[in-house]
């Protein structure tokens, strides 16, 4: 029907290329996670997952060829997920006193501990007390 002439029809060849890439990336993320990459482990796994997600969204969900307003809807939604995550971490990642039940803050406690360590020992405490002899 002429009304639908402008609907984008993704060629089968493109779909096959994407699924092959998705399978390859899945194997890659398993292989790299089995190796010990230290601090790179988590960022690499996330980067691969993001790439896979982007492939599915842009080609399988056809956002790449779609009306731009849908990309805006998706983009704004994704942005708010980032805001949610980052602003939560501003709080939770910098608390450090989760198990503390005292009234003082962590900084006050640390200052108090340092003060104890740095304090000059009392001269009388170092002398042998002869008064009991």
């Amino acid at each position: 029907m002429s009304q639908h002439a402008e609907h984008h029809i993704t060629p089968i060849k493109t779909l096959v290329q994407v699924i092959v890439a998705l399978f390859a990336l899945t194997v890659l993320t398993v292989v790299t996670s089995r190796m010990d990459l230290g601090a790179l482990d988590v960022p690499l796994a996330l980067a691969i997952a993001l790439t896979k997600g982007a492939l599915v969204v842009s080609v399988f969900m056809a956002l790449k060829y779609d009306n731009k307003v849908n990309a805006v809807v998706f983009g704004v939604g994704a942005l708010f997920v980032v805001v949610f995550l980052v602003f939560t971490l501003f709080d939770t990642a910098f608390r450090g006193d989760l198990s503390s039940t005292t009234k003082g803050t962590i900084m006050e406690q640390e200052a108090a501990e340092e003060a104890i360590l740095e304090r000059e020992p009392d001269a009388s405490a170092l002398q042998f007390n002869r008064s009991n002899e």
Binding site: T29, S33, D41, A45, V56, F60
Partner: peptide, 20 residues
């Protein structure tokens, strides 16, 4: 579209829970 989203959620769950 719904099904692809379910797939994307799993794409993230797999490395986060099973791998790293």
């Amino acid at each position: 579209l719904y099904w692809h989203l379910v797939d994307i959620i799993w794409i993230f769950l797999f490395p986060l829970l099973y791998l790293i």
